[in-house]
Design a protein around this nucleic acid. Structure first.
Lengths: 142, 142
DNA sequence: TCTTGCCTTGACGCCCACGTCAACCCCTAC
DNA sequence: GTAGGGGTTGACGTGGGCGTCAAGGCAAGA
């Protein structure tokens, strides 16, 4: 199978496959015309890469999985090096989720505080001669 | 105060301040030598920007807060446009945290599955003449 | 006077996973 | 012959927020 067909079957692009080849991740055989040639096992490798990419793995992090499959193992994660990546990724995810959750709570707190302040100021604004909110209409419509 | 002092007091760099100026976010007055000049209110604006940046806001998303402060409001989030950004960011954070959590669970599941499979294969390997794990030592040390 | 230290603008580098040309080749069908 | 639909390499663009020179100016202190 040639590069266009493999790309289509994996739901990606020829550019991506050529990029993977420059990275040494998915080298291709060549036919008489110099065209890249792939087989079903390459599709398997490619799907492994794409799945991990979808999970947010860096390209380099998919390498142990690909090497593992290429070595004849039934799954990309049958090798210890892949498990190391799994564990490192889990730790990264936990750290990230923790940070994002903390930020989320902070922002939520700021929002409700600002909303309360606004409601207070809105009550003030109802008083004749009170302060008027002049920022958005004057500043944001330039 | 000049650019170096402002940068130091805000814990950032002169390059960053010049960048903000090109973005129209933090314009500076100029003295006789053409040097940028800032005052305390600029430090206030800069701290607002940096705080939001630390929360993961894009530079453009900090603009309403800065405009709000510059319009004379007590807080950067005293204006409706800022609240809109808060709410949008909250929604983004929730979506992202949800995705990451789902990925985390998937990866954790894959890891424990792979570990169970490995333990099973390890038992096989204890049998004389059993299959040997040949991938990492052969592939990863090139 | 010379060094030191701060400032200026301009421009390229970085990261990562590709997208998007450009210019060309090869085979097939009409 | 020629149009179309594959393929090839090479090179530059993208985005975001700066880092890092390069080449020069201006003022104060030893």
């Amino acid at each position: 199978m040639r590069i266009g067909e493999l790309a289509a079957r994996a739901g990606t692009t020829t550019r991506t496959l050529r990029y993977y080849e420059t990275r040494g991740l998915l080298p291709a055989r060549r036919d008489g015309n110099g065209h890249r040639t792939y087989d079903e096992s390459d599709l398997r490798l490619l799907r492994q890469i794409r799945t991990l990419q979808d999970f947010g793995f860096d390209l380099e992090e998919t390498r142990p999985f690909v090497e593992c499959l290429r070595a004849g193992h039934p799954e990309g994660d049958s090798c210890p090096a892949s498990l190391v990546v799994y564990r490192r990724k889990l730790a990264e995810l936990d750290a990230l989720i923790g940070q994002l959750t903390a930020v989320r709570e902070t922002v939520a707190g700021q929002l409700s505080r600002a909303e309360r302040a606004r409601d207070g100021l809105a009550a003030d604004a109802l008083v004749p001669g009170g302060p008027e909110p002049a920022c958005e209409l004057g500043r944001l419509t330039r």
